Simulated assay, not measured.
Amino acid sequence: MQCRLGCGACCIAPSITSPIPGMPNGKPAGVRCIQLDDRNLCKIFGQPGRPAVCSDFKPDPDICGSTDAVALSVLTELEAATVRAG
Rank of each mutant, 00 (worst) to 15 (best):
Q47M: 14
P51K: 07
P51F: 05
C54W: 02
P59L: 01
R39L: 13
F45W: 14
I44C: 11
T67Y: 13
S66N: 10
T67I: 01
Q47S: 13
V70D: 15
Q47C: 02
C42D: 11
I44W: 12
C42N: 11
D56H: 03
V53F: 00
P61G: 01
D60C: 05
D62L: 07
P61M: 08
C42H: 09
N40L: 04
P48E: 09
N40A: 07
R39Y: 03
D62N: 13
C42K: 07
G49K: 13
P51D: 04
G46V: 08
P48L: 04
G49A: 13
D68I: 01
I63G: 04
S55V: 08
D60Y: 03
A52E: 06
F45L: 13
L41N: 05
V53R: 06
R39D: 13
R39M: 09
N40T: 00
P59A: 12
A69K: 11
D62V: 00
P48K: 10
P51C: 06
L41G: 01
K43V: 10
N40H: 08
G65R: 12
C64D: 12
V53H: 01
I44R: 14
I44K: 13
D62F: 02
K58Y: 04
T67Q: 10
D56R: 07
G65C: 06
P51R: 05
R50L: 11
A52G: 04
A52H: 02
V70S: 06
K58N: 14
D62I: 00
A52W: 02
C54E: 01
D60H: 15
V53D: 05
F57A: 11
D62T: 08
L41Q: 14
C54I: 04
F45G: 00
V70K: 08
F57S: 08
C64N: 11
R50Y: 00
D62H: 10
S55F: 03
G65D: 09
V53T: 14
D60E: 12
D68E: 06
S55D: 14
C64K: 08
R39A: 15
G46F: 05
I63M: 09
R39C: 04
I44Q: 12
K43Y: 00
K58V: 14
C42R: 10
N40F: 04
